[in-house]
Design a protein around this nucleic acid. Structure first.
Length: 143
DNA sequence: TAGGCCATCTGGTCCT
DNA sequence: AGGACCAGATGGCCTA
C-alpha cells in the first residue's frame, strides 16, 4: 500500500465517518476553542511599531507601572539588563521557530481542514496532527 | 464589546 | 555563568 492510497483511504474514511469531523473534534477535544478564529499572524505582523514599543522595555525595565508588583520584581531582577536583552531575543527566536514549525506542520495535514475557511490555529494543528497520526497508525496496523 | 489567538517579555528552573 | 525551556502576564488584532 503506497502513501497515496493510504492518504486517500483516510480522506474517504473521514468523509464517510463524519462530514463534520473537524467540528466534532473541536467540540470533543477542545471545548475552549469554539470558533475558528483568525490566525496567520506572521512574525512580520508584529515587527514594526509594536516592536518599537516593546523594545522600550529594555531601556525602561519598569515601564508597566510603578505600582505594579511585576515592575517591582523587575527592579530586583538578578539578571543584568544586557543578559535579559539577550535572553529575550533568544526566546523570541525560539518562539518564532516554534511557530514556523507549526506552520509547516499544517501542510502535512490533509487539505480538508484548511478548506473550511480560516486557517488552523496552533492548538487545532496539534490536535488534528495527533488524530491524523492515530488514523495512519490504525490503517497501517490493519494493512 | 467580549472572547479567542497570537507575539512578546519576563522570572524561575534546570542543565551544561 | 550562560543557554534552553517553561509558564504567567500583557497588549494588539480580529471576529461574532
Amino acid at each position: 500500500m503506497d502513501v497515496d492510497s493510504i492518504t486517500s483511504k483516510i480522506l474517504a474514511e473521514w468523509k464517510v465517518s463524519d462530514g463534520a469531523f473537524v467540528e466534532e473534534q473541536l467540540q470533543s477535544s477542545s471545548p475552549e476553542s469554539s470558533s475558528m478564529d483568525s490566525v496567520c499572524s506572521s512574525p512580520e505582523m508584529f515587527s514594526s511599531g509594536h516592536q518599537e514599543i516593546q523594545d522600550l522595555a529594555y531601556v525602561f525595565p519598569g515601564r508597566r507601572s510603578s505600582c505594579d508588583p511585576k515592575a517591582q520584581r523587575q527592579n530586583k531582577s538578578k539578571m543584568s539588563t544586557k543578559r535579559r536583552m539577550k535572553a529575550s531575543e533568544r526566546e523570541k527566536m525560539r518562539m518564532r521557530s516554534l511557530a514556523e514549525a507549526l506552520h509547516q506542520l499544517r501542510y502535512y495535514l490533509p487539505p480538508d481542514y484548511t478548506k473550511r475557511g480560516q486557517p488552523l490555529t496552533k492548538i487545532q494543528t496539534l490536535k488534528y496532527t495527533i488524530e491524523y497520526i492515530n488514523k495512519l497508525s490504525d490503517i497501517l496496523s490493519h494493512a
